[in-house]
Amino acid sequence: MTAGVVVRESRVAIAVAGACPVCRSPGSQPFLSVDGRDYRRCETCAARFLYRRQLPSRDAEYAHYLHHENHPDDPGYRRFLTKLAVPLLARLAPASRGLDYGCGPGPALAAMLRMAGHEMAFYDPFFRPDPKPLEVTYDFVTCTETAEHFHRPAEEFDRLMALVRPGGWLAIMTCFQTDDARFQDWHYRKDPTHVVFYREETLRHLAAARGWHCEVPVKDVALMQRPSDHGGMK
């Protein structure tokens, strides 16, 4: 069987009732119903996710994002982003080239990385939808507070990982789901555009399935490194 056939078949698996939209495993189970929303959990990668039929419309998503107040010059927001920026910068070569994927209307993280001497490109399906930045590869790709919004996370991670050059880094920041007993009242779940929730083990599983190295330097941050051409890591 060719690689192309495998990819097509794995994508078809997402359409199967109960299939995990994160790792494409068929092994998911009903998890919780709350506030009129129904969630499942994956027995393979441990993700929790909203039933596909209940995903918000694109218009509803966009209207909600317009109320976000993540200003690039806000010192508090910048401090929040250092959680990812500091460990990532420690792993990058000088003058690396990166992509801020899901940058939103005010790409604060990209501004911070530029100040550190790195070249940045931007992509956001709502605020910077030009697909040209997705046609090349990068030394690193950042995805902060974005993965929880993915309606097709398996396909998004395929795209993100394809954007990283051999030896490069994919940096993910999302609030890890850790306690099922608190899921119902968790503030992160109550955002109507948050539809998929990852555990540390979820992201480690996604990396391992592709032969990538995964580090979790702090809670809510995963740094995945693509193997270099000669099979090792940087």
Rank of each mutant, 00 (worst) to 15 (best):
R189E: 05
R91Y: 04
P133F: 12
D191P: 07
P107W: 11
A111G: 10
I172G: 01
Q177K: 11
P30S: 13
F176W: 14
R210T: 05
Y39D: 02
A181Y: 06
H205G: 05
Y101L: 05
V221T: 03
E135T: 11
D229S: 15
Y62I: 05
A181L: 14
C45Y: 04
Q54D: 06
E201G: 04
R165A: 12
H187K: 14
E43T: 11
G117A: 09
P133A: 15
D74H: 09
L32S: 07
P166M: 05
M224N: 01
G231C: 13
L55R: 13
H213G: 02
R58S: 06
R11C: 00
K132T: 15
D59L: 14
M161W: 06
R97W: 05
L66I: 10
V86L: 13
P21R: 10
E215P: 00
P125M: 13
C20H: 03
K83P: 03
Y62N: 02
K219L: 15
P166L: 09
V5A: 12
T146F: 15
F197V: 01
P217V: 03
A108W: 02
T137W: 05
V136A: 14
Q225A: 08
T146E: 06
V221S: 00
K132E: 15
K219Q: 08
D229W: 14
A13E: 05
H151V: 03
V34P: 02
R152H: 13
L223N: 03
R48T: 06
V7M: 10
R79V: 04
E145I: 04
H213L: 09
A208V: 00
L84F: 04
K132W: 13
F176D: 03
R37W: 09
E148A: 08
R79N: 11
P131G: 15
G106L: 09
L163S: 01
L84A: 05
V6P: 01
E119K: 13
L55Y: 15
P94T: 01
A154C: 09
V136R: 12
G18N: 12
E69Q: 12
S57F: 06
P131C: 15
L92T: 01
G167T: 11
L206A: 05
P30Q: 09
D139N: 11
A90E: 09
L32K: 09
L203A: 00
S228W: 02
T2Y: 07
Y51W: 10
R78N: 10
T44F: 07
A108R: 00
L160P: 00
L92H: 01
K132V: 11
A121T: 06
P21E: 09
T202K: 03
V136T: 08
R189N: 11
N70H: 12
L203M: 04
C23Y: 00
T178H: 14
G104C: 10
R182S: 14
R40C: 10
R78G: 04
R48E: 05
R97H: 11
C175K: 13
G36Q: 08
T137A: 08
C42T: 00
R204S: 02
T202L: 08
